[in-house]
Amino acid sequence: MTTIRPFTCDDLFRFNNVNLDPLTETYGLPFYMQYLAHWPEYFQVAESPAGQIMGYIMGKAEGSADLWHGHVTALSVAPEYRRLGLAAKLMNILEEISEKKRCFFVDLFVRVSNKVAVDMYNKLGYTVYRTVLEYYSGEVDEDAYDMRKALSRDTEKKSVIPLAHPVRPEELD
């Protein structure tokens, strides 16, 4: 039991129990507002019946021609609301919206070390399209998987054929 609704600015005041998780980044206000202004339908929040924020997904649609795709920028669920299938639900919404926008695929980046997340995305039908070297900077830089799932418009599933070689962040389009 969860209410999923569009994320609003006021939710920024209450998303601490999600964002204090060490793997969830808190961005500057412009970042969130850019998404809210440009792709409001891709920014959804899940709320518990007691009014707590359980998690949220933030994404966008971009790319031209057959690279037109939905992108998951952030997906996070607070520790206490995990193992309820909430992330899958939020991903599902993003995919449906991308379908409606006639996207060819949905993609996302995930830390190679974040096994829980990688496994979950696998279960949801995402496969590693390529590895991006040292995509996450920190004390030790870390590689990212660029994972993809083809949508119905990509009938031949061309978008998810894995690349043979890893790429560097500056080679990303």
């Binding site: 518990s48 007691a50 707590q52 359980m54 609301y81 995990r82 193992r83 309820l84």
Partner: peptide, 11 residues
Amino acid sequence: DKFCCVEDLTI
């Protein structure tokens, strides 16, 4: 066995 069970029930 879910963490949120308490929160749900306390309502």
